[in-house]
Simulated scan of single mutants.
Amino acid sequence: MHSNLIGRVLKFIDVGDALGEVLFGLIMALTFTVGARLVAGDETLDARDLVIATLGCNIAWGIIDAVLFLIGIRIYKLDRARVFRAITSAADDKSALAAIAREFPPDEGPLTLDKRDQDEVYGYMLALARRAKPSTTTFSLDDLIGAFIVFVIVAATAIPAVIPLLIIDDKYLALRVSNVLLVGLLYATGHAWARFAGSRPFVVGMAMTGLGLILVTVAVLLGG
């Protein structure tokens, strides 16, 4: 069930982007819970206000990130249309192949190709481009679903932060539990990222935790 849900989500958003949104949401929530006591002080710290502020911040940034996600898709589609026009409107094969080489340099791809294989790949790309129709630059339903998923991820990362504040009467204990949960989730995010990338889960998990805490510290110190 769990893996099936993840598989459905990854149809609409790249796994790296999804984990990045989780990391961003956790850092936002942790900034509030870590900075709350420093800003409000022991006397005026109010758990209810902190819950509202944390949820509100992550919801707001979820909306912002969803919009930025759609802007990124729009830019990508427009750029793809520009590449298509550059290839199909070239005066001759040599110019078209040069346009392909500029857009898809062999040293930036996932594979290293020798000159013969490179020419063959570019030749196939040119033949396909001439037979293809330009793709639409408007948003698809999948794009909108992807943006909604981005919103949900960022907004939902605030939930582990606020649950202790809602169920534990001692607000200082609740704040500590909240912080521990968020730090644990930072590690879990790095661990998952490493498993996806084929790297070392423990090392990346610890590095992600350290990086997250550094970013939270910077945000708190700068009044974020």
Rank of each mutant, 00 (worst) to 15 (best):
L213C: 13
A81G: 04
I13D: 02
R195G: 09
L26W: 00
R195W: 11
I145A: 09
L211H: 03
L213D: 05
R131K: 13
L126S: 10
I27A: 08
I159Y: 02
V83K: 04
I73Y: 06
S3N: 14
I167L: 13
V162G: 00
V154N: 00
R37N: 15
N4W: 11
D79R: 12
F24K: 00
D46N: 11
I214G: 09
A66G: 15
A53P: 03
I75N: 06
D117W: 07
A207G: 02
R130V: 06
L211C: 01
I167K: 12
I159E: 07
G35E: 05
R116C: 15
E120H: 01
D142P: 01
L215D: 03
Q118M: 10
G223H: 05
H191S: 08
V220D: 01
A96W: 01
T31L: 10
W61I: 03
A91N: 10
C57I: 10
V152P: 04
L186Y: 00
R80G: 02
S140C: 15
A197T: 14
I168A: 11
D143V: 10
A127Q: 13
I153S: 00
A147S: 09
A219S: 12
A40C: 12
A47W: 08
A90S: 14
G72C: 11
R176Y: 09
L111F: 15
L182I: 05
A127E: 13
L185H: 03
P201H: 06
S135Y: 12
N58S: 15
V34D: 02
A197K: 14
R200C: 05
L211I: 05
V183A: 08
R195H: 11
A174R: 02
G190V: 08
G62Q: 02
I52Y: 14
A194E: 10
I100N: 08
L30V: 01
L68G: 12
